[in-house]
Design a protein around this nucleic acid. Structure first.
Lengths: 366, 366
DNA sequence: ACAGCCGTAGCAAGCGCTTTCTATCGAAGA
DNA sequence: TCTTCGATAGAAAGCGCTTGCTACGGCTGT
């Protein structure tokens, strides 16, 4: 029924070994022979049997890309970019050059699913794995991840982190590209402070994620540097951090959560003059909430986001945010996964975040 | 080095066949034996060799999901939804129930890459393939796709279309879920007409895509029904379709194209009172262009989109659009791919599109 | 003119798993 | 008590491909 290597070999009047070598191009084959084989492949419409090939060669051409939420452009952009570097141009039949199959795995942010996908990829003897986005800061899970990744690396799978800090004991990893979330958070807060804001609300992501923590840390760093971590006049100095807590509301990285958290924030601290959101999607929700409360942006309250997703510039007013070069980072991660690019010195590179000042932030009134 | 089935068998003091049967759970194995095997699997940290398994069983647990642009939430949402139905909960090791590996393949809208990915999936003996989004209307490519899909189907791969019309000779397909783009386009135009608009610009997608054509056809259908396909007073009746052409500008489905096409449209026909965009992303660009021309939405000009992506409700003013149940459709496609759900009668189901009237459309002035 | 090589092609042994067919054991039926 | 059958387990034959090693010419060098 299906055409096998042997069929091609028979038609080309050569041995299966020769056909294999023509297809893999890693062994000298006379030009005339090669041509004959290629013609036979074409005539028979032969398609390599991937599993058989992977089994015999002990490696596969699968590259896994793990994302937290593929419906979120933040991940979509990175994954798409990575894929451009992975799925080669392809020649249709036979096996092309460095052509690999990039597979995007949607963990939904769940640690279990993350591990499950890693096992699935391990089972497939994946050539590489790219882990994108923030990690969950749970010691047990991190340990499990480390162990799993070590096993993958042992089996020859290349590991690349993209926009994700390397694991504490980042032994076996090939490369890590991490975003300067802390620096971005800091610069954003500095911007607001310099505009004159003193009470700044923060709509944060889920507390257990590294991304959330880093952005928030940068934010608070800036406030502290500006002497703004103190509680309002008259309050006990020791309560300053409590106050910061009050100005921070956590929730998932989605629009709805941004809306609700902002409402909650406005209830808790009606005197905030600016709101920083965990990311642009959340910021959109925050904007909606602010407006629904009858306030104008930025006249009554400033709002800022993070990531600079494509839609952010089209928000009205355009969203002040921190630009992360998602496409570039994803592409680079893809190249690293393919071994097309050398890992950065030390295995880890920090990618700069650029402050984009737009219309949604302004000096507070008065 | 790596643990194999045989190692597990040795440790559990059973034959490899028994281990295989325990893992696959499709053959009676005494409870005590099963337990012993499972313990051995655990002790040795055994992970099934996917390629070997696929080779022997002649099927794999890969399910391919083809998308045009994974950075676009339109596809991200569908793909993510499909994946929720495909990647089972997973039990970590061994082989879980209906657990499959969903792989998202980003074609970038390129016909060649689409075929390449199909070949790659064929090579992997994928269990199913889900094709999402509009197809390119090129006879040669469609023929190639038909042939490829027929071959895949022959090999036992299930084929599901999601938001994509079935191929002309849709023989081997299992199921097709198509969006009522035409109906949506029609209702949207009817809405604008009923508001009193007479000159409606259309910022369309790439001309060769089915989605583009269907939406545009629906649009023009409604205009025709309203007697608006005629050229402006005084013009030759025969030129009416020329006029429609003038009111239509094609471009890629992205924000930037929406911006530029709108500028072009405004130049060509400064008298339009409403602009319908190919989709929400394009609509955002259109809004920006309109505003940059110093016009207000909807007072000076109405703007509408298509898809109802999450950010659309947050645009200012909120975008009138046509809601497509992307998540539901994606999930259903996933279920169909898994064989968890029966295909619709006739193999093809049309999914309704709902008009969402929001603030970006209003009656024209005067 | 002969040994030694280089350039090619073939042989055959797996890669690790699934599955058909066969064997075995104990209990139930005659 | 002996046969029959159901429930389990094992033996072994591949699945289709890769690759180390061998084989075979024709060249080159002496």
């Amino acid at each position: 029924m299906t055409v096998t290597l042997a069929d091609v070999a028979a038609r080309a009047r050569v041995s299966p070994a020769t056909v294999s070598r023509v297809l893999n191009g890693n062994y000298p084959v006379a030009a005339s022979t090669r041509e004959r084989v290629l013609r036979a492949v074409d005539d028979l419409d032969y398609v390599l049997n991937g599993p058989a090939s992977s089994l015999a060669a002990a490696t596969s051409d699968l590259v896994g890309i793990l994302v937290n939420d593929i419906a979120d452009p933040f991940f979509g952009i990175m994954a798409g970019a990575a894929q451009t570097q992975i799925g080669g141009p392809g020649d249709g039949s036979g096996r092309a050059g460095g052509e690999k199959l990039a597979v995007i795995c949607n963990t939904g942010g769940s640690p279990e699913r993350e591990l499950t996908y890693l096992t699935l990829l391990q089972r497939q003897r994946a050539a590489a794995v790219v882990l994108t986005g923030g990690a969950v800061e749970n010691p047990a899970h991190q340990a499990a991840m480390s162990a799993k990744l070590a096993k993958l690396a042992d089996a020859g799978t290349r590991i690349v982190f993209c926009g994700r800090p390397p694991l504490p004991e980042g032994d076996a990893l090939v490369a890590a590209l991490t975003f300067d979330n802390r620096g971005g958070g800091r610069r954003l807060a500095e911007h607001l402070v310099s505009l004159g804001h003193r009470r700044i609300g923060y709509v944060a992501g889920p507390p257990e994620r590294t991304t959330t923590r880093h952005r928030l840390e940068g934010h608070r760093e800036a406030l502290r540097a500006a002497g703004l971590d103190a509680a309002p006049a008259g309050a006990d100095r020791d309560r300053s951090s409590d106050d910061q807590e009050r100005l921070t509301v956590h929730g998932p990285y989605d629009r709805r959560s941004g809306y609700e958290a902002t409402l909650e924030l406005l209830r808790r601290a009606p005197d905030v003059t600016a709101i920083v959101a965990a990311n642009d999607t959340v910021a959109l929700g925050a904007c909606a909430a602010v407006r629904d409360q009858g306030m104008r942006i930025p006249q009554d309250i400033s709002v800022a986001g993070f990531d600079d997703l494509p839609f952010s510039v089209d928000a009205v007013p355009a969203l002040t945010t921190v630009r992360l070069p998602l496409f570039e980072a994803g592409a680079r991660a893809g190249r690293l996964a393919m071994g097309k690019e050398n890992p950065p010195p030390g295995g880890i590179a920090t990618i700069a975040a650029e402050l984009m000042i737009r219309g949604s932030t302004a000096a507070p009134r008065g």
